[in-house]
């Protein structure tokens, strides 16, 4: 069988991603990477988990392979499978296998979305063994010395039905993420969406009001990502109230009463 050649370049992050550090997470991640400790990133949606991984991959100069997990994902989607071609069968490495071979950072985004029996395939790669057995192929891959495993999940109310096994959780060191402090969030929003600081301040104020509603009618508060979307629309010349209704109120809820009060909050802050 001809040896598969992997184009590593495609996995490198070429441009430095914008990331505002909120605590000591950069330092902690670097230390974890030095000893190749698997890392789990916990936090609500849109608070900067994926951006952080991109930033760290760029900072450390490692390729990054991201997999968005979903319910239909099978172990072979991660590890690889035999495919048929005219000459016979051909092994196709999955993203996890590629990462282990080339020494990339493998990032499994929203890991709880995958079924628990799928996620166990990462176990041998995340403990002292650092190996990946390809049973169908009869091959045991020793992970590249630079390989690191990173997973993320949102420990919200929905994790009640979809939770990680203890045996998976306890293979990772973990960093807790949350929405950044007011000043940092204003900086992020104005930087990312190129709006004036006073607009960014108002957007963050809306966010703080909306986040008060978490668990009181909303399952989740508004993410920094949505604030950036609103800011981008505003910088494109859209009227602030309309931009906020489009990118903050409407995506968050289907409840007409809640939509009314979110619109009212937006009108209160953007007079």
């Amino acid at each position: 069988m001809p040896k598969q050649s992997i184009d590593m370049d495609q996995y490198f992050i070429n441009n430095k991603p914008y990331y505002e550090s909120v605590g000591k997470e950069v330092e902690l991640y670097e230390a974890a990477y030095q000893i190749r400790l698997p890392v789990m990133l916990k936090g609500p949606t849109g608070c900067g988990k994926s951006r952080f991984v991109e930033y760290m991959a760029h900072k450390l100069g490692r390729p990054l392979i991201t997999v968005a997990c979903n319910e239909d994902m099978m172990a072979s989607d991660l590890v690889g499978r035999f495919l048929l071609d005219k000459e016979g069968t051909k092994w196709q490495d999955g993203p996890l296998t590629i990462a282990a071979r080339i020494g990339a950072i493998c990032y499994l985004d929203e890991i709880v979305e995958a079924r628990q029996d799928t996620t166990v395939v990462i176990h041998p790669l995340t403990d002292h063994r650092r190996t990946l057995p390809l049973e169908k192929k009869g091959e045991l891959i020793e992970a590249h010395p630079d390989f690191q495993m990173v997973i993320s999940y949102n420990p919200g109310y929905q994790t009640l039905m979809k939770d990680l096994k203890q045996s998976t959780k306890q293979r990772f060191s973990a960093l807790n993420f949350d929405y950044p402090d007011e000043n940092i969030e204003v900086r992020i929003v104005s930087n990312e969406s190129e709006v004036e600081t006073d607009i960014a301040e108002k957007l963050v104020k809306i966010a703080h009001c909306v986040r008060n509603l978490k668990g009181h009618g909303l399952d989740e508060g508004v993410s920094t990502r949505l604030l950036v979307y609103a800011g981008k629309l505003i910088s494109k010349g859209i009227e602030p109230k309309m931009a906020c209704i489009m990118s903050i109120a409407t995506p968050l809820t289907d409840d007409p009463d809640m939509l009314d009060s979110l619109s009212e909050i937006i009108c209160t802050i953007f007079e």
Partner: peptide
């Protein structure tokens, strides 16, 4: 607007 107002006050004052 009963529910909307309750949400609104919660959002403003936590």
């Amino acid at each position: 607007c009963h529910r909307s107002i309750e949400f609104y006050l919660r959002a403003l004052w936590d």
